[in-house]
């Protein structure tokens, strides 16, 4: 019974993920017939540029790969953050991690002249970590403690402050604005799959940490008293997991820019099926995250022809109602 309850949803999830991958390659603003698609796919994989649909298919393959990795990173990051902070509203966007990461990336572009994702990823990690620390410190120091409300507000304040600094930089520099306005919305379009190699070191380490963090997160769910009784190594484990969660968010920001609300929504969707056990929640988030990003990205390509709506905008517009629903469902949110 227990085995079936684990494997059946996982099998279904895997099937849906496969379907999302296929749909992401097959559907786009330019309609291709199945024949063209297969021809383009073969040509793209052989590296031939002669086939007219090869370019389209190659671009879609790239954005599918990037989208899947971003979804994986953001989904897992959100799950780990919700577990660590015991906050159902935790998400790299809401907690200000995305804004902190974006701020340092912009400063790096402007003042250090950086331009590669390999450099972005470390700046994003540093900015994300600083933001996470600040938000947690502020909300923990508030009289009510680190509640979902104080965390969300500290995150919103930090994001607004970061936006002001970014605006100050961009207003003085029209060239940077032209680059940044395409980056700030969060998009997987036009990101070559080779970017994945640039972020690979941090991505792999963070993925490993978060994937193995189920026990730590389950312990965190038991409450602080029990944790304190368990002692110092729990603190170390929690700090490591936090580092991994922020690392994943930083990778996603470096790859695609800030993607809102995916980290918030994915674990809640997963919990509907798996229940509260974090080992299962993490596994499920690793499947549902990519599915959600790929499907919203595909939807964004066709929702407003002939132009595309970037995935970061799609997730914000679709995710905000989910956040509102969560706020209403959880009632007073003490």
């Amino acid at each position: 019974m227990s085995r079936r309850r684990t494997w059946l949803p996982l099998g279904v999830g895997g099937g849906v993920l496969l379907l999302a991958l296929v749909v992401s390659v097959a559907v786009g603003s330019r309609t291709l017939s199945p024949g063209e698609l297969l021809g383009g796919l073969r040509a793209a994989l052989d590296g031939l540029a002669t086939d007219p649909s090869a370019g389209v298919v190659a671009a879609r393959l790239d954005r599918t790969a990037v989208g899947a990795v971003v979804g994986l990173a953001v989904g897992l990051s959100g799950a780990a953050m919700q577990g660590l902070t015991r906050n159902p509203l935790a998400d790299p966007g809401i907690l200000g991690v995305n804004a902190g990461a974006a701020l340092l990336v912009v400063l790096g572009v402007q003042y250090l002249g950086l331009s590669s994702a390999a450099a972005f990823v470390w700046l994003a990690l540093a900015g994300g970590l600083l933001a996470a620390l600040l938000v947690y410190a502020v909300s923990a120091a508030s009289p009510g403690g680190a509640t979902p409300l104080t965390m969300a507000l500290a995150g919103a304040a930090l994001s607004a402050g970061a936006v002001s600094v970014v605006a100050g930089v961009l207003v003085a520099n029209r060239g940077a604005l032209d680059t940044f306005r395409f980056w700030q919305v969060g998009s997987v379009a036009g990101r070559p799959a080779s970017l994945l190699l640039d972020v690979a070191p941090l991505l792999v380490v963070s993925l490993a940490i978060v994937a193995l963090s189920g026990r730590v997160l389950n312990a965190a769910a038991l409450g602080e008293d029990l944790e304190r009784a368990l002692g110092q190594r729990v603190q170390l484990a929690r700090a490591t997991v936090a580092l991994g969660a922020v690392g994943l968010a930083a990778c996603a920001v470096a790859l695609a820019g800030p993607i809102a609300f995916v980290g918030l929504v994915v674990p809640h969707l997963v919990r509907l099926v798996t229940g509260p056990d974090y080992q299962r929640v993490l596994l499920g988030s690793a499947v549902v995250g990519p599915v959600l990003v790929l499907l919203t990205d595909t939807l964004g390509r066709v929702v407003m022809p002939p132009s595309e709506v970037q995935v970061g905008i799609m997730t914000a517009v679709l995710g905000a109602p989910v956040l509102i629903w969560l706020v209403r469902r959880t009632g007073a949110l003490r």
């Binding site: 507000l153 919305v185 809102a260 970061g312 905008i313 914000a316 109602p321 956040l323």
Partner: peptide, 13 residues
């Protein structure tokens, strides 16, 4: 906060 985030992304778009 949720509405703000949503509207901000509309503006960015």
């Amino acid at each position: 906060v949720a509405l703000s985030a949503m509207l901000t992304s509309v503006v960015h778009w």
